[in-house]
Amino acid sequence: MYQLLDPSRFVVFITGATSGFGAAAARRYVAAGGKVIATGRRKERLVELQQELGADNCHIIELDVRDRAAIDAAIAALPEPFAGINIVLANAGLALGLQPAAETDITDWETMIATNVTGLTYTVRALLPGLIARGGGHIVTLGSVAGDYPYPGGSVYGATKAFVKQFALNLRSDVQGKNVRVTNIEPGLTETEFSLVRFKGDEGKAAKPYEGTTAMNAEDIAESIFWTTTLPAHVNVNRLQLMATTQAFGPFDIYRG
C-alpha cells in the first residue's frame, strides 16, 4: 500500500467551494489536517463552511473566477498561514440548459464558456508560478465524462469539458521538470446541485436524472481527488474518469425518418 504524504503540509486553493465537489473536498482536506482556501460566489455558504471547519483551517474568499483581477488580488492578499499553496483544485464550473443547439439561450453558452474555460485558465495562470517557485505542487482540474461522450443538449458544456481535459494534458507538458503534477478528474452521474443549477432551480427537472438509480455523490469525488494528491510525489494520475456503477454507455443514436 502507498505511504501517504503528511496531510498537514497541504494548503489547498479551491474554486467553487460553496457546494458539491468543492465543499466536500474542503472538508476532506481539513479532516486530514490540511488548510484550505475556499472560494466561491456565495458568501453566506463560505461563511457557513468556515464556521464548520474553523478559521484556522479554512480561509474564505468571495470570488468569481471570471474576474481575473479579483483572482490576482485575492492571491496577493492571502494571510501567511495560507500563502504557501501547494494544491490547486480548479473546480468552479457549471452546466446550463439542455435544449437543442438551435433553441438554446446563447447567454447560457456564454456563461459556461466564461466559467468553465476562461475562469479555469485565469485560476491556473494566477497560481501556477507560485507552485513552481515553492518547489512544486499539484493542479487538479474538474472535467467530466461529457468531455469524451456526447449527449443531446450537451454541446457547449461537453465542449468546455473537452477543453479542460486537453488543457490539463498540455499543462503537464508545460510543467515538465517543475515538480508540478496535473490531474483531470472526470466524473459521470453524481448527485449534487449540478442539475439544480442546470435547470435553474426547477427541482422537478433536477431530480429526474437521479430517479430510480444510485448516483455517485460529492464525497465520492472528493475522496478521489484527495487520493490523487496523496500518492507518492513521483506518481502522477493524468486522468481519472469515474462513473456510477448504474451508468454505462448507450448505443449509437440513429435517426429513422
Rank of each mutant, 00 (worst) to 15 (best):
Y2H: 14
L4N: 12
P7T: 14
S8C: 06
F10D: 15
F10S: 14
V12R: 00
F13H: 13
G16N: 03
G16C: 06
A17D: 04
A24W: 06
A26F: 05
R27K: 13
R27W: 02
R28M: 01
K35L: 14
G40D: 05
R42Y: 06
K43I: 12
Q51N: 14
L53A: 10
L53H: 08
A55W: 03
D56H: 05
I60P: 02
L63N: 00
V65L: 05
V65I: 15
R66Y: 00
A70S: 11
A77E: 15
P79H: 06
A90Y: 07
G97V: 15
G97Q: 02
L98V: 14
T107A: 09
D108I: 15
W109S: 12
E110I: 06
T111C: 03
I113Y: 04
A114G: 07
A114I: 06
T115M: 04
T115F: 01
N116M: 13
V117A: 10
T123E: 01
V124F: 09
V124D: 11
R125F: 08
L127S: 07
L127M: 10
I132M: 07
R134T: 14
G135N: 10
G136H: 06
L142Q: 11
L142T: 14
S144W: 03
A146H: 09
D148Y: 08
Y151Q: 04
P152C: 03
G154S: 13
Y157W: 05
A159E: 03
T160A: 04
K161A: 14
F163V: 11
F167W: 04
A168V: 02
L171M: 10
V180Q: 02
V182E: 11
G188H: 09
S195G: 03
S195H: 06
L196I: 07
V197N: 12
R198I: 03
A207R: 08
P209F: 07
Y210K: 08
G212P: 09
A215Q: 05
W227L: 15
T228L: 07
T228F: 02
T229S: 12
T230M: 15
H234S: 13
V235E: 00
V235A: 03
V237M: 13
N238H: 07
N238T: 13
L240V: 14
A244M: 08
T245N: 08
A248N: 10
G257M: 04
